[in-house]
Amino acid sequence: MQNNTRHFAAIGVLVVIFTFVVFWILDAVLKFPLAASTQAGPIDSLIQGHLWIIAFLFSLVVVIAIYSLFLFRRREGDTEEGQYIHGNTTLEILWTALPMVVVIAFGYWSTVVLVDITQRPDNEIIVNAEGYQWGWNFSLPNSDAVTQELVLPVDTPIRMDLTSKDVLHNFWVPEFRVKQDIVPGRTTYLRFTPTIEGEYRLICSELCGLNHTGMIAPVRVVSQDEFAAFWNQDVQTASSK
């Protein structure tokens, strides 16, 4: 047993070191797009939390496994059988209960985030998006103008009202993080608040037939003044063409 204590100490140290190394690699390698909505903040924090747990559990299993492979490999000429151990009920209960606590904690954290990113703000504006095979139409309520470019005001809570002309589609701007399926025959909703002015791409991420690959629309996040000007003038000319 004295022997085992030394091994467990070595494994403990290795797991800690490995956890930091694996997290550092994950963080460096997983290149999320720019975070350009208020929703992206809490979502990305949750993802960071997940990555820490992944790094820890990965290190835990891999370090113990590889350590065992070296420590307990059969030496040449050794014909004995392994140690006669059937199991350990305390350990089994421990590694059932601890993961249970961790997943419930993550469930709670996610619940808080999900409530936060889906709640209805006071001053939201509504924008309609209609998906079809294979393109997008955008409009504002109480306006006949239709455009193929999604123009949104910065720092304003948006509610997208999503409809489809034909099959399932999906509304996703990677920089805003959130996405929502679009279902023919009903309206689905998606809330987000763009925070950075710039140009993005709206991509359909629910397979919708032949040219699903190309179902992309330009998105422009502009100042609130520019947004008002766009919907008063540009669109009128665009739709009257």
């Binding site: 113990i64 492979l69 059969r74 151990i85 199991g87 089994e92 993961p99 993550f106």
Partner: peptide, 23 residues
Amino acid sequence: LLVAVPTGVKFFSWLGTLWGGKL
């Protein structure tokens, strides 16, 4: 999330099987 729990039991039990073996 609950699926993670019995799956974890399998992983840890496999490690327990390796530990002290003659691999």
